[in-house]
Design a protein around this nucleic acid. Structure first.
Length: 825
RNA sequence: GCCGAAGUGGCGGAAUGGUAGACGCGCCGGUCUCAAAAACCGGUGGGAGCAAUCCCGUGUCGGUUCGAGUCCGACCUUCGGCACCA
């Protein structure tokens, strides 16, 4: 554990000041947010934390700057909603229950209790009356309600599907929760299982989710990740004829983005899970095929999806007819074809697809060029040609470009009824079932007579029973809970069994931003009128790790809700900002094993909340993150100390000095320039440069105090405006100093100071004089200098003369307010 | 492999195509002190020079421009994302 030793002797007791004002603000309800306030609303949302038990410095890095922004908006005259809550369902609580014998509820709620206190120490403007805790029935009953609504509108369904299984967490996972074939939570290599599970139809919204036009300002990086994740490809679904085999199924459907290569098909491949495999396999091949399919099932996803792996497969013994060429091609099964994409079957075109090429070479299948590059020598290629070219060996399409061929063949395929143009997506439907205890029960019962029956709304919430065995068995612990499981069918009144799986916790976070508008509202998930007032969220901030999970799911949720008629907007979060990651002082990711973890409580206990806030914002650009520094924080502590000393001075001491009109104007100018700078920087989350400009102002004030060149009135104005600018950044010390300078409580109810463009304007500028782009002189000139005077001055400069002597001055380039560049030849 | 983002002093980082290194850390020198810490003042990219001043300098190599850290092209490195997606 690293605790920063205080190397700066503070003139004030930060801990006492923190406590004093936090208590006062809480007692006065200063941060109560009124839905009916007449000021324009601003919804500034920070991603809510998981109640892990301890607020670490990374939480501070997410919370403190966003609070600064919310405070800034508040001082700008907005009615700001900047709420906080806890993402309280999920595996860690259950794992704690298993390993330590504590109930997940108790573990979670005591963690929340602790984190509330820690969050209060940040000094944020959270309205605690709006706190949202997802694991409480008053919240999760609405998860169940949303589920029923989605079910009612065909957006939820149950299906048996090969799903991703984490053998360590003993539950299925959504595709989004798999990273490189491993569970994103525990890193275990995932496998697949065939299970009946509940899905939400996010794929219905694939195209709309690709449309980012409703977003005002999102990082390009996140949009790109969502685009990649959705993975839209346009192509043609075309079927191959198998009617000669004599099965009920007369064709095999495949999807291709390269219909122009259809004449190059020399084989077909079905995924090992493809439903037609058993029927198409001939007796001679059966043993081999079954062995292969079984092996593929047992292979881990990480192995199966490895691009390094050699292509393997076995022939089924059956053949299919390529309807365009009339050719008969052998059908294989191979695990490089995924059951989850397209139709689970592909046409093998070795000449124009790298994977098909490798496969064909291995099994001695013909490679036929049908798209000829300009320099083709007519021979069989040494590798797949995936680029452009002219069609060849393709009957009547010969001579067309690949693009022309694509269009022509697609037209013909559609005309003959063999297939149609279509779009395929990488995105899968969202699997929300989890075989775990600590989540929202899915409100469905299974009845022998009626099947799967959704519970009527008036039977909500389905309460999660407190007494359950948490041992992960691969089935939900609720399976063992007889009292929970056995129920009656709401439709026929007969005996029925409850669904024992619980919901993915990303369901909770898909709509929590709506619940903040009225967390105690009992008539529904939200009060429609209040929701209308606050939503959508104006500014969302949080980590980029949620790009294709939470941020995609909640976009889907809102669009689905809109189509159901619950809301009338399209996007939940208009603007998104991703803060970076705070690293240890060794520039490495913080971890207990590295011993570089910073405990914020320790630092706050010594330096105070404001120093920590300031330092985190001063490190660098917020979106870049950066290393913590035990010595670096002394810099801002020292600065706050100087601020304190400066404000404590008696302005009347300046009354005896000789105020200098020039110095007064200069000081006022610096003040107004600082106001302009802070305004722009806080608006754009550039906290580091905002603080730097405040430091410059303080440096300037120290100087004029020492020189006693300004009077008390100027001094007081500067101090007052300075404190207002400091208020969103360092709320405690600025409130204390606001009080000490005789201002009425509270500084946080004041307006952010506005600058005057005339007062901020420079009177003189440093005119840079360059010769051929190299700086040769700097001249102080009036800011309103005209071009010809500037040029004259530049050419007359003694330092310029040696460079122009004996040369021809070609031209002089004048950049107003900046420089003259003399070009000589 | 594909797609992004980024490379600036000893360190964190500033710089609408126009004075590179704001602000801070650290370091050096000074004041104060018996001494130290703290505080305050001054200095601090590299090189040459007593100095004025000059030269070099934003990952590398080219280009555009009167002028490039910034724009363009290629490459190198680092980080992030996707990756048998037919």
């Amino acid at each position: 554990m690293t605790s920063a030793p205080r190397q700066v002797e503070l003139r004030f007791n930060p801990v006492e000041i923190d406590r004093k004002w936090q208590e006062r603000w809480a007692n006065d309800n200063l941060y109560h947010v009124d839905d009916n306030d007449s000021r324009p609303k601003w919804y500034d949302l920070t991603m809510y934390p998981y109640p892990s038990g301890d607020l670490h410095i990374g939480h501070w890095y997410a919370m403190a700057p966003s609070d600064c922004h919310a405070r800034f908006r508040r001082m700008q005259g907005y009615n700001v909603l900047h709420p906080i809550g806890f993402d309280a369902f999920g595996l860690p609580a259950e794992n704690a229950a298993i390993s330590r014998g504590i109930h997940p509820y108790g573990w979670t709620m005591s963690n929340i209790e602790n984190m509330r206190e820690q969050l209060r120490s940040i000094g944020a403007i959270y309205d605690w009356d709006r706190e949202v805790i997802c694991c409480l029935p008053e919240y999760y009953r609405w998860n169940q309600w949303f589920f029923l609504k989605f079910l009612e509108h065909g957006l939820a369904y149950r299906a048996k599907a090969p799903v991703v299984w984490c053998p360590s967490c003993q539950t299925v996972l959504a595709n989004e929760q798999v990273l490189n074939g491993s569970c994103e939570r525990c890193n275990a290599v995932v496998t697949r299982r065939d299970l009946e599970q509940w899905f939400l139809r996010i794929t219905d919204y694939a195209d709309e989710l690709l449309d980012f036009s409703g977003l005002l300002d999102w990082p390009e990086k996140i949009l790109m990740m969502q685009r990649n994740w959705i993975g839209r490809s346009e192509g043609v679904e075309i079927s191959f004829d198998i009617s000669h085999v004599g099965l009920e199924e007369k064709e095999i459907r495949t999807f291709t983005t390269r219909i122009d290569t259809i004449f190059g098909v020399t084989f077909m491949v079905l995924a090992p899970e493809h439903p037609l495999i058993a029927q198409l396999t001939t007796d001679e091949q059966r043993e081999q095929v079954e062995a292969y399919v079984n092996q593929a099932r047992q292979t881990s996803e990480i192995e199966r999806l490895s691009t390094e792996k050699e292509k393997t497969g076995v022939p089924l013994g059956a053949y299919a007819v390529n309807r365009l060429s009339g050719e008969l091609v052998p059908i294989y099964t191979a695990d490089y074809v995924l059951t989850t994409y397209g139709t689970g079957a592909v046409m093998g075109v070795p000449a124009h697809d790298e994977r098909d090429y490798m496969f064909a070479r291995k099994y001695g299948l013909p490679v036929r060029m049908v798209i000829a590059p300009l320099d083709w020598d007519g021979k069989e290629p040494a590798e797949a040609h995936t680029g452009l070219g002219f069609m060849t060996n393709s009957g009547k399409y010969d001579g067309m470009t690949d693009d022309e061929g694509k269009a022509a063949i697609a037209d013909d395929v559609e005309k003959s009824g063999w297939g149609h143009r279509t779009t395929s997506y990488r995105l899968r439907d969202w699997l929300i079932s989890r075989q775990r205890y600590w989540g929202t029960p899915i409100p469905v019962v299974y009845c022998d007579g009626c099947g799967a029956v959704p519970l009527p709304e008036d039977q909500l919430p389905v309460l999660l029973p407190e007494d359950a065995e948490f041992k992960p068995t691969g089935e939900s612990p609720l399976v063992e809970h007889e009292a929970f499981r056995n129920t009656i069918c709401p439709r026929c009144g007969g005996p029925a069994l409850r669904e024992t799986d619980t919901m993915d916790t990303f369901v909770d976070s898909s709509w929590y931003m709506l619940r903040y508008t009225g967390p105690k509202y009992e008539e529904g998930a939200f009060d429609p009128d209040v929701l209308k007032h606050w939503l959508p969220v104006d500014q969302y901030t949080g980590g980029a790790e949620h790009a294709v999970m939470h941020l995609l799911y909640s976009r889907f949720f809102i669009k689905a809700m809109r189509d159901i008629g619950m809301v009338d907007f399209d996007e939940p979060f208009l603007r998104l900002f991703n803060q970076g990651v705070i690293l240890g002082s060794d520039h490495e990711k913080m971890s207990k094993s590295r011993g570089n973890v910073v405990n914020p409580d320790d630092v706050v206990g010594i330096m105070g909340a404001d120093a920590v806030r300031c330092f985190l914002m001063f490190i660098g650009p917020w979106d870049q993150g950066g290393p913590w520094s035990d010595v670096g924080i002394n810099g801002v502590a020292r600065w706050l100390n100087r601020v304190w000393a400066l404000v404590e001075r008696n302005p009347d001491d300046l009354a005896t000095g000789q105020a200098d009109a020039q110095a007064v104007r200069e000081t006022i100018r610096v003040l107004h320039q600082t106001m302009r700078k802070c305004h722009g920087d806080l608006d754009r989350f550039k906290f580091n440069t905002a603080i730097a400009s405040l430091m410059e102002l303080v440096n300037h004030m120290s100087k004029v105090w020492a020189e006693a060149t300004v009077g008390p009135a100027t001094w007081r104005e500067c101090i007052e405006k300075f404190l207002l600018m400091l208020a969103p950044i360092a709320p405690h010390i600025s409130e204390e100093l606001w009080e000490k300078t005789g201002h009425p409580y509270s500084i946080h109810q004041q307006s952010y100071p506005e600058w005057d463009e005339d007062l901020a304007a420079d009177e003189t500028i440093t005119l840079v004089v360059q010769v051929n782009g190299r700086v040769r002189d700097r001249i102080e000139v009036p800011a309103n200098i005209d071009e010809s005077t500037a040029n004259e001055l530049a050419l007359a400069s003694e330092k310029v003369q040696p460079y122009t002597e004996g040369k021809v001055v070609d031209k002089a380039i004048y950049v107003p307010g900046r420089l003259v560049n003399v070009v000589v030849v």
